[in-house]
Design a protein around this nucleic acid. Structure first.
Lengths: 213, 213
DNA sequence: GATGGGCAAAGTCATATGACCTTCGGCACT
DNA sequence: AGTGCCGAAGGTCATATGACTTTGCCCATC
């Protein structure tokens, strides 16, 4: 059975072009069209398409907001953004709204149909330019988050983690190291943050796995 | 003129297979082969290929480290990782090391050659699975980074930023607010971090632009 | 005029603290 | 048994500090 697609774009001409192009593929069926975000959300509920091809810049409600709303209705919804402009903030917002794919309208028709198939299978797709933008953004984010790459614990943090490993509570750790209890709590917060976990026991486990303890 | 490619993989069989596959493409020319990271770095300097196809798990020096070294030699070098395993940490490390692309060996030969062309043109590529992993990781990172979305300065930080705006130096700010000079320096570090800049004057400018001051 | 030593200002990093928030179990009162 | 209050423990956040590193400039010396 073919992939049921809904197309959302405010330009009639663009919709007609894409429609013709999708009609050539016998495993893709266009079952609905919307010309703005608001209409898209309402038609999504009526037709339950497998995948939504979504423009961003549209009247009444833009594609990002519509994606968010559709995802709120059905978290498993597949949304593939197809837009003229690939600014970083569009891309970021679209991905955070839950879109599985992000293509510039500059892509070839082959790339579009191939992307529809991939997204339908549960994969994610980005065109070359958007991948580039995402990677740059990802690198910038990662560097802020992990200043050393090594992810080392400081001397104090390691001391404290070792005491946690011995099942000591905060008060005992504080007495042991001659610190205020608040200080110990703070160190533990930092350790959790560095190890990307949310409780002390998991922290010990992760640290051991990475040979930090 | 064809794209000059260097192939790095420790398995002879894999190298032979890829070699045969690339020979079918007349715009791609294999000019060098290495079987570990160390050899890769040295051959890179000798042959200056347009693009390096790099495995990760190899003896002596792995592909991530080799990518880092090659990028240190030539920041414009293009590296396309081609690996069996797509764990998140491999992907993350590879991208932070500067790789332009990351493909699992599960990709089709068409996808490989197409990816080589894209990376050579300066685009970035990821296979479907890796894109998925990256997006998840990106979303997680973004959420951590912007807990409020507002990116607010604390009371103290704002006080200090206002004094910086008046061209005060650290000593004067310290006296003014009854703090140690080191404390002032530390607050400024935090402000720079929050505003993503590296000097106090730019911090004032950015804060004004965002209406934080 | 070049050079390098030295110093002050700026900036980074690990450390330390307490106010406050969240969770959860027990216990008193109904 | 149900309810709700309380306190202990864990955890987050803004605050504060000084040791150390980096940067840029001035001046003495060649």
């Amino acid at each position: 059975m073919p992939i049921k697609v809904m197309l959302v774009d405010d330009q009639q001409l663009m919709r007609d072009g894409i429609k013709m192009l999708l009609e050539l593929e016998d495993d893709i069926e266009l079952i609905a069209e919307a010309s703005n975000g608001r209409e898209a959300v309402s038609l999504y509920e009526q037709h339950a398409p497998d995948l939504v091809l979504m423009d961003i810049e549209m009247p009444l409600m833009n594609g990002i907001e519509a994606t968010r709303k559709i995802k709120a209705i059905n978290a498993a919804a597949r949304v593939l953004i197809l837009t003229t402009f690939g600014q970083e903030d569009y891309l970021r917002d679209a991905l955070l709204a839950g879109a599985q794919g992000f293509l510039l309208k500059a892509v070839s028709s082959d790339e579009l149909t191939e992307s529809i198939r991939k997204v339908n299978k549960g994969e994610s797709v980005l065109d070359g330019h958007s991948t580039q933008v995402l990677l740059d953004s990802y690198r910038a984010l990662s560097e802020v988050k992990r200043p050393k790459g090594k992810l080392l614990l400081t001397v104090r943090e390691e001391q404290i983690l070792k005491l946690i490993d011995k099942q000591k509570n905060n008060r005992d750790i504080a007495i042991n190291l001659q610190l205020a209890e608040g200080t110990v709590k703070n160190y533990i917060s930092q350790i959790l943050e560095k190890l990307q976990v949310h409780d002390r026991n998991r922290a010990v486990r992760v640290a051991k796995e990475r040979g930090l303890l």
